Simulated scan of single mutants.
Amino acid sequence: MNMDVAPRLEWWQQAWRLAAAVAVGVLPWLTTGVVLHQHGVGTGSWWFIGDPLVALGCLTALLWRRRFPLAVTLTVAIASTASALATGALLMALVSISTRRRPVEIGIVVLAFVAASQFAVGLYPVPNSPGSLWLRLAFPALTAGIAVAAGMAIGARRVEVRSLRDRAESAEREQAARAAQARALERNRIAREMHDVLAHRISLVAMQAGVLDHRGNLTAEENRVLVRGIADGSHQALEELRDVLGVLRSDPGDPEPPQPSFDSIPALVDDARASGLDVTFTSTMTGTPSEAVGRTCYRVVQEGLTNAAKHAPGAPVHLTLEGTAGDTVRVAVHNAAGPRDHRTGAPPPASGFGLLGLTERVTLAGGSLAHHPTPDRGYVLTVRIPWPKHGNEKRA
């Protein structure tokens, strides 16, 4: 951005500035006429006609001072020495070019004005006027210096205001970028929660529906149990989805719905067992981890049970929790290969983002995740998460 460009003026701003220049010039013009009359020197046609015409020309030239600043200011500085009424136009031109804060331009204009003023003293010959050269140089130099100082101050103020405005606009852009980043992070978090919630429930429902469709030798009671499990699982999936979507519709200050914790893992295992999953749960935890670690452990168990229900329905699943405060928490979910009589013709739908999102969640908690097939054609998911004593974990 060019810091020398002055703000654009409206026509009414131009008009009142020119009117102010005329008002400033009237006083020295009338003073000159009074002094000449007191000393018995006739004002003549120049004071009535020539002086106002020169002032009019200077005021007209000021209309182009922003397009041709140096040329206009030089013209006004030289011409104004022949007109007392043009004093206001001179001061306005000097202030205007000084706002650009270019020493070379200012120096050229001031020298031209001081030099031209020495040749214009004969237009109004006043008796007993100062005859020494340094006095004749000092007065125009002082006049130009005052105008230049005022213009420099105005220019500095414009630069400061423009700098503050640029900084404010930059701060607004940064704030908008931070808000967009926060919205993206929140969308990612909500999407991850939706995946964790729905993938688990829908996988259990799909597993029960697959058993109901594949096995024709079930008793009426077993069919009722499976149908009831499908209905309950679908209802719970809708309820949990409604809770997650409620965050999108709520105000930023509203409290979030309660998040799953470490204490909810046994209920999660019981739910999986009720849906037909053969789960063996072993825990050797020496305490209850913090909210962040517990929530991450819950999501790991949920994703492990979801994948077992998807890819190995009917296979036994071994869930192990180990950990000590101040050390690490180890979560392992191991499932064997699914029995043949539980396999259906169509594979369950897979999003492909479950382990990817879980890896991101575990990484945010400062842990590590590993998953791989086992020799018995099963699969194992292992996660290690730091368990600090004082609960300084990152939110996952």
Rank of each mutant, 00 (worst) to 15 (best):
A149E: 00
N217A: 06
A177F: 01
R224N: 06
M194R: 12
A199Y: 09
V225F: 06
A138G: 00
A179C: 07
Q208P: 14
A150M: 12
I202D: 04
L137S: 09
G151V: 02
E193C: 06
L133C: 07
V159W: 11
L204C: 12
A176H: 09
E186N: 13
R189T: 12
S170I: 14
H195N: 06
I202L: 10
A138P: 03
E193Q: 15
L164Y: 10
L185C: 03
D213P: 02
A180D: 08
I154K: 09
A180T: 06
H214M: 00
A144G: 04
H214K: 10
A220S: 13
L198P: 03
E172I: 05
R215F: 02
A176M: 04
R167A: 10
H195S: 10
R165H: 02
E174G: 07
T219Y: 00
R189H: 11
V148W: 01
V205C: 08
E169G: 04
V159G: 08
R192F: 10
G210Q: 11
A141G: 08
G145K: 02
G145S: 14
Q208R: 13
Q181P: 00
D166Q: 13
L218R: 06
V211K: 10
R173Q: 14
N223P: 05
E169R: 15
A180E: 07
G216M: 04
Q208N: 08
Q181K: 07
T219K: 01
M207N: 09
R173D: 14
A179H: 13
R183P: 11
H214N: 06
R224T: 10
E193F: 08
A179V: 08
L226N: 03
A191S: 13
E193P: 06
E169F: 06
R201F: 11
W134F: 14
R157C: 03
R165A: 03
L204V: 05
H200G: 05
V225S: 13
R189L: 11
A179T: 12
A171C: 07
A176S: 09
I190A: 08
M194D: 07
V205Y: 04
R189C: 03
L135W: 05
R162Y: 04
E221F: 07
T143A: 09
S163T: 10
V161L: 09
H214A: 04
R187W: 15
